[in-house]
């Protein structure tokens, strides 16, 4: 599983990364977590506001820090 966190390095982007890493650790799910700061790459997903979370190419959320509950749902197989 590839999890991309789109954001230019703001506080909410950092919180998003921390939240995802925390849930991955708790659940034992293995995923490649990538922080995407390149604006062209971010815009290629059609995302207009960050932070955003993209899992295996699907945009799951944009514009806010995800709830742990949502992260668990996204990574559940």
């Amino acid at each position: 599983m590839k999890i991309e966190i789109l954001g230019t390095g703001c506080a909410k982007c950092k919180k998003t990364k921390e939240a995802i890493e925390k849930v991955l650790k708790q659940t034992g799910v293995e995923a490649e977590v990538i922080k995407v700061e390149d604006i062209e790459k971010i815009m290629s997903y059609g995302v207009m506001i960050t932070p955003a979370v993209v899992i295996d190419g699907d945009v799951k959320l944009a514009g806010k820090v995800p709830d742990e509950k949502d992260i668990r749902k996204w990574i559940a197989k």
């Binding site: 059609g46 944009a62 514009g63």
Partner: peptide
Amino acid sequence: GDLMCTVGIGARAPGLMKSAESS
């Protein structure tokens, strides 16, 4: 505000839809 793509909503482009949802 922030300019967003109206046609992206028509296309149900996920990034645009999620951006609008969090507005």
